[in-house]
């Protein structure tokens, strides 16, 4: 039997940082995400429409950024079924060529093997793509 869970509750301390993940967003990412998600809002795929809406270019779907932050958390815990709760605020647009670093830190250990993480996604200039984000995970 393949065990998915990686890190154990007892191995984790408040303040521990989880390994970061980095992604440079390209227009193709937005097109592929639109097809996969069914969200064809043109401001994410059509530069002409993005400009009409006052933006310099197309930008990443917020839920794409959230999924990549989710991946970063699951890379650390191992078992996707152990991600219990996850919240984000969409704060900064990610344009073609922007590099986002996804990371997190253990904020609190709760009863019942639950761990609360403070998580984030920041662009190369340090400004947030996602802010005030939190995840609750179960660790065996």
């Amino acid at each position: 039997m393949e065990e998915l869970a990686k890190i154990k509750y007892d191995e984790v301390n408040v303040g521990d940082e989880i390994p970061t993940f980095e992604h440079t967003w390209q227009k193709m990412d937005g097109i592929i995400y639109a097809g996969a998600s069914g969200d064809f809002n043109p401001i994410h795929v059509d530069p002409d429409i993005a400009k009409l809406s006052g933006q310099p270019n197309v930008f990443a779907h917020g839920l794409f950024n959230m999924a990549l932050l989710g991946k970063t958390i699951i890379d650390w815990i191992g078992d996707p079924g152990n991600l219990k709760k996850f919240s984000v605020q969409f704060r900064g647009r990610v344009f073609p060529g922007d590099t986002v670093t996804f990371g997190g830190r253990v904020k609190e250990k709760l009863e019942g093997n639950l761990v609360v993480l403070e998580v984030w996604a920041n662009k190369q200039d340090g400004s947030p793509a996602l802010k005030n984000c939190e995840a609750t995970v179960y660790l065996p």
Partner: peptide, 26 residues
């Protein structure tokens, strides 16, 4: 599309030998 190719999402052979028995959605 969200840059996650872990086997439990995409590989049925791998998933068969986990507690889930099949792939799961991210």
């Amino acid at each position: 599309a969200t840059k996650d190719n872990r086997p439990i999402y995409i590989d049925e052979e791998f998933a068969k030998n986990t507690k889930y028995g099949d792939i799961i959605a991210m």
